[in-house]
Simulated assay, not measured.
Amino acid sequence: MDEILQATSTGLRSVVREVLGDRDLRTRVATKADGSLITAADTKLQQAIRAWLDTLEESPALLAEEQAEETNQALIDTVPPRLWVLDPLDGTTNLASGIPYTAVSLALLEAGRPILGVVYDPDRDECFTARHGAGAWCNGEPLRVMEESHPATLAECVALIDFKRLVPELAATLAAQHPFRSQRNFGSVALDWCWLAAGRGQLYLHGRARLWDYVAGWLIASEAGIVSQTLDGDTVFTCSLQGRSAMAAASPSLLGQWGDWIAGAL
């Protein structure tokens, strides 16, 4: 890893561990307007990470989940030269329920393109990182999906699928006639992408994720060799607040098989 990525991952890790050391923050839970949960940990993490970013550069531009939509949209509209994108806690329902599958996700965009991604899993103390064009790592160890190590057919794969945000017809078909060996859904978009990068699944499907949910994890997975597209066949990343669908696989061959199967099910 280069010095900037190392400093970013080390600093983020330190901030997160300090904030989540106060376990009382996890138990203070409220419901947002869209029906999703928010804990005091979400709010405190966003405040602490913003303060830490202020020590890295002067007046950093920050787009974050627990920030007013109009503020985030203004940042998208102006496309600042450098834009940090933060999900202070991806997997809030898991945290509030005591399920150990959450992450803090931070990406840096330059001229509207992701160049750096850090996803930290505080439960396992795993820090996934990536630099555009340079590779991906977990706790400093390189991540690379190897051709000879992944299955050749869908029937041999483990799929990470978020059923809740799929159209009902596709979700029902997947549940009744699944083409893969087995399926998992853990509740953190950022961490799901990282687990794909680490070889802990070979297929992925999500109906709609926001920019802060996916951008860091998507960069990490892409740099590790995971291939992806939207359900419409477009590139997953776009510098927009609109939700994006995503399908991904450990190889172009598997992605082709996965896409053909999904198209036939729709």
Rank of each mutant, 00 (worst) to 15 (best):
P100V: 08
P100I: 13
T102E: 13
T102L: 07
V104N: 08
V104F: 10
S105V: 03
S105I: 04
S105F: 03
L106I: 07
L106F: 08
A107N: 02
A107Q: 02
A107H: 01
L108I: 04
L108M: 09
L108N: 01
L109G: 05
E110K: 15
A111P: 13
A111L: 14
A111K: 14
A111Y: 11
A111Q: 15
G112V: 04
G112L: 04
P114L: 03
P114Q: 02
P114H: 02
P114R: 03
I115Q: 09
L116P: 05
G117S: 01
G117Q: 00
V119H: 07
Y120F: 14
P122D: 08
P122C: 10
P122L: 09
D123T: 11
D123L: 10
D123E: 12
R124G: 10
R124C: 08
D125E: 13
D125Q: 14
E126S: 05
C127T: 12
C127W: 01
F128M: 12
T129E: 02
T129H: 00
T129C: 02
T129R: 00
A130L: 03
A130P: 01
A130H: 01
R131Y: 11
R131G: 11
H132A: 15
G133H: 09
G133T: 09
G133N: 07
A134W: 05
A134G: 04
A134S: 11
G135M: 07
G135K: 06
A136G: 03
W137N: 03
C138P: 04
N139I: 06
N139S: 11
E141D: 10
P142K: 05
L143S: 03
L143Y: 03
R144H: 15
R144G: 10
V145W: 00
V145R: 00
M146N: 12
E147I: 04
S149A: 15
S149I: 08
H150N: 07
P151W: 10
P151L: 15
A152I: 01
A152S: 09
A152V: 02
T153D: 11
T153C: 05
L154H: 04
A155N: 09
E156T: 01
E156H: 02
